[in-house]
């Protein structure tokens, strides 16, 4: 299991649990989409969440960050029950949310978008953080003063990721980063995220439908259906093309 996996990067040999959900139910207008969902993620893991369209993957991400309230069940993040905290407090505890569809602030510049991400730390954009972000995504340096809404989807995706990286999160919630983006940028993003994970030990929960990206990034995966986890796949299963197609089939 990943729990006892030897890591030369982390300080601890045995990784602690960073996030657990128990019996999580959440949804819209009183109707639950998540129906008692349970996951457990350890520090430093990259875990994929896969499943067909509309099974509630994005709803899971939104309820983890606090944009969709939990109706019942619990979310424990680094030992603290967070299901009743508003989104901004969860972000301040070190969760970084990169939404499906990116949601950059369209009329703010790239630099201002990143400044919003940096504001949690109280202050402007730290030079060290800026170097880290533009080191990973050099395009952001070029476009620093451009309005985010005028950029391509791939550039906006890199900005949406850079905007959370600036605050040095412990856990990144990455919702379909490959959606509508050119393959070479998808590869770029995957490579960068894996490299970041190796270097800093940041934990990543990745919602994806793109097999290449899942294989490039994830160490294991949860399969989701109708608001529940229906299977847990280890690394070897991710490489089994037939099985993966079955889980991802639209």
């Amino acid at each position: 299991m990943s729990g006892s996996r030897r890591s030369i990067w982390g300080r601890r040999m045995r990784k602690e649990v960073i996030l657990t959900t128990v019996g999580l139910r959440a949804g819209y207008g009183g109707k639950p989409v998540l129906q008692g969902l349970e996951i457990e993620v350890r520090e430093g893991e990259i875990v994929a969440v896969i499943g067909r369209n509309g099974v509630g993957k994005s709803t899971l991400m939104k309820s983890l960050i606090g944009l969709v309230p939990a109706m019942s069940g619990s979310i424990v993040y680094r030992g603290e029950a967070v299901e009743h905290l508003p989104a901004h407090k969860r972000a301040r505890l070190g969760m970084g949310y990169v939404p499906q569809g990116r949601d950059v602030f369209p009329r703010l510049t790239v630099g201002e978008n990143i400044a919003v991400g940096a504001a949690i730390k109280g202050g402007g954009i730290p030079e060290e953080g800026r170097q880290r972000v533009i080191g990973a995504f050099p395009i952001l340096r070029e476009r620093w003063s451009q309005r985010a809404g005028t950029m391509s989807g791939g550039q906006q995706q890199q900005l949406a990721i850079g905007r959370v990286l600036i605050a040095d999160p412990n856990l990144i919630l990455l919702d379909e980063p490959s959606e509508g983006i050119q393959p070479n940028i998808v590869q770029d993003i995957a490579r960068n995220m894996v490299e970041l994970n190796r270097r800093t030990g940041v934990t990543i929960i990745l919602v994806e439908q793109n097999l290449d990206m899942i294989r490039a990034m994830a160490q294991r995966a949860y399969v989701m259906d109708k608001g529940r986890i229906t299977a847990s796949l280890e690394r070897e299963a991710l490489d089994d093309a037939a099985e993966m197609r079955r889980h991802l089939a639209v």
Partner: peptide, 21 residues
Amino acid sequence: RFGVLARATIQVPHMAAALGV
């Protein structure tokens, strides 16, 4: 900083909140 956060908040309120605003 207040101005940038205020403009972010009007443009995409839920995302501003998710980033800690």
